[in-house]
């Protein structure tokens, strides 16, 4: 549990925008332990997703480095799984083939891959939908497929970019509980991006608050709440409410800063 999994050192990322160079992230440092559930929060547009994209290897740092198991991340690879806000499933593949595809890429035969995918179908409660096409599913079900797909080939790290952001409030709560149940079973290092403080504190071992652009780590709050957590108990837990206030207070200045800079006329 205390093994260091991810180490982000002096990370800077800039883009060429319409008005010249825009710094999304500047000198960001962060360490993440193995099997830890880390949630990144910050004002919208602060570079949370960009950070996650760099962890995935989709984008490259401008300077600095990200180490995964002491190896510099050079590109995307199957030691990581990624869950997108908009699901990004393969519309032409059935649910089971969406999930088994990663295993086929790993070299499993189609039959073996489907067999293994069945375990994740059960884990995510997708029984009965194996042969459905994604467009016939509800948002919550689609994201179950998204999570199953990311877990299917057994990556060590699960990266989640506002995965419940496009779900309705009810489904969202349900999916948060489901995610904790799955995480408890599968034990992964999770890096989860959200702008919901409620969600962040409910899920996390540690909440990392990022500053407005250019992003740095503003504060890290350890969430020492009992597990397993569920809405019925955790929501009314006084410590949970206190922690939520604490995160909100740290975040507040950044949101005000963001508003002044980007939303003033």
């Amino acid at each position: 549990m205390d093994e260091l999994k991810i180490e982000i050192k002096n990370l800077t990322k800039s883009f060429m925008g319409g008005e010249g160079e825009v710094k999304a992230i500047e000198n960001l440092n962060l360490s993440i332990k193995e099997n830890e559930f880390t949630v990144l929060v910050g004002p919208s547009g602060c570079g949370k997703s960009t950070l996650l994209y760099m962890l995935a290897g989709f984008e490259k740092p401008t300077s600095g480095s990200i180490l995964l198991d002491n190896q510099i991340i050079k590109g995307p690879g199957p030691d990581r799984g990624f869950v997108f806000q908009d699901f990004v499933l393969y519309p032409w593949k059935t649910v089971v083939r969406n999930i088994s595809f990663g295993l086929e890429i790993q070299g499993f035969s189609q039959k073996e891959a489907i067999e293994k995918a069945k375990q994740k179908i059960n884990l995510l409660g997708l029984q009965g939908f194996e042969n459905a096409y994604p467009h016939t599913l509800s948002g919550g079900m689609k994201q179950r497929v998204g999570i199953a797909r990311a877990l299917a080939y057994n990556p060590k790290v699960l990266l989640m970019d506002e995965p419940f952001g496009s779900l309705d409030a009810q489904t969202r709560k349900l999916m948060q509980e489901e995610l904790l149940r799955i995480w408890n079973k599968e034990k992964k290092t999770v890096v989860f991006v959200t702008h919901s403080v409620i969600e962040a504190v409910f899920l996390a071992d540690r909440v990392v608050v990022l500053t407005d652009r250019p992003s740095r780590v503003k504060g890290i709050i350890d969430i020492h709440l009992d597990r397993p957590r569920d809405y019925e108990h955790t929501y009314t837990d006084e410590r949970y409410i206190e922690l939520r206030e604490k995160v909100l207070n740290i975040l507040k200045d950044e949101v005000i800063h963001h508003k002044q800079h980007y939303e003033s006329v």
């Binding site: 989709f58 995307p76 199957p78 799984g81 990004v88 890429i105 790993q106």
Partner: peptide, 9 residues
């Protein structure tokens, strides 16, 4: 969708 496939290797 290309990213989600490249991360699977």
């Amino acid at each position: 969708i290309i990213w989600s496939t490249s991360i699977m290797g």
